[in-house]
Amino acid sequence: MQNSMESTYPAEWHEADRLEIQMLGFWIYLMSDLVIFAILFATFIVLGQNYAGGPGPKQLFDLPYLFGETMLLLTSSVAYGFGMVAMQQEKKNAVLAGLGAAFLLGAGFVAMEIHEFYGMIMAGHGPSHSGFLSSFFALVGTHGTHVSFGLLWMAVMMIQLLIKGPTVVVRSRLMRLSLFWHFLDIVWVGVFTVVYLWQVL
C-alpha cells in the first residue's frame, strides 16, 4: 500500500522523539560545561601554588565549614531525587515539596559560600592578591554561579508546576534540571577534593 521508497511520518512521532532530542542536546551542553570546569581545574592546578607571599590553603580553609556546605549540597540533590521519584508516582505535592527542600538546601549552600568569600575578601585575601587566590575564586565561584542559576531555574519550575501542572513539557524540563543539579554535585566533589582536601591534608 505504501510506496516502499517513502515513509509516512505521522505528526505524532514528533512528540516522542522530541524528548530524546532534548535530552541528548542537554547532555551535550553539560559536557561542554564540564570542559569549562576542566579548564578551571587545570588552571587551579597550575596556579595553585602561587601564593605570592600570601596565605595558602592551610591558612584559609576551614574543613568542618566545608563539610557543612557539602552536606547541604548533597542533601539538596537527595531531596531533588525524592521529588523526581514522586513525579513518577504522579504526586504533585510531593514533587513540590522535594523541589522546595532542594531549593532551600541549595540556597543554604550558596549562602555559606558567599559568607566564606566575604570573609576572605574582608581579611585582605581576595582574588586579586595572588594567582592561587584568583584561581580558587574563579573555580569555586563559577561552580557557585552555576548553582545559583540552578536555583533560579528551580524556582521557575516550581511556578510552572503550580500553574501548568505536571505536563509532559514540565516533566521533561524537570528531568533536565535534575541532570544539571546532579552534575553540579559531581563537580563539587571534584572541587572539594582538589581544592580543599588535597591542599590542606
Binding site: 588552571t43 596556579l47 602561587n50 601564593y51 582574588p127 586579586s128 584568583s134 584561581s135
Partner: peptide
C-alpha cells in the same frame, strides 16, 4: 575587570 592574576607578570600570574 577585577584585577586578578591569571596571566599577569606579577603576584603569581602565568
Amino acid at each position: 575587570y577585577l584585577g586578578m592574576h591569571f596571566y599577569t607578570n606579577d603576584l603569581g600570574g602565568n
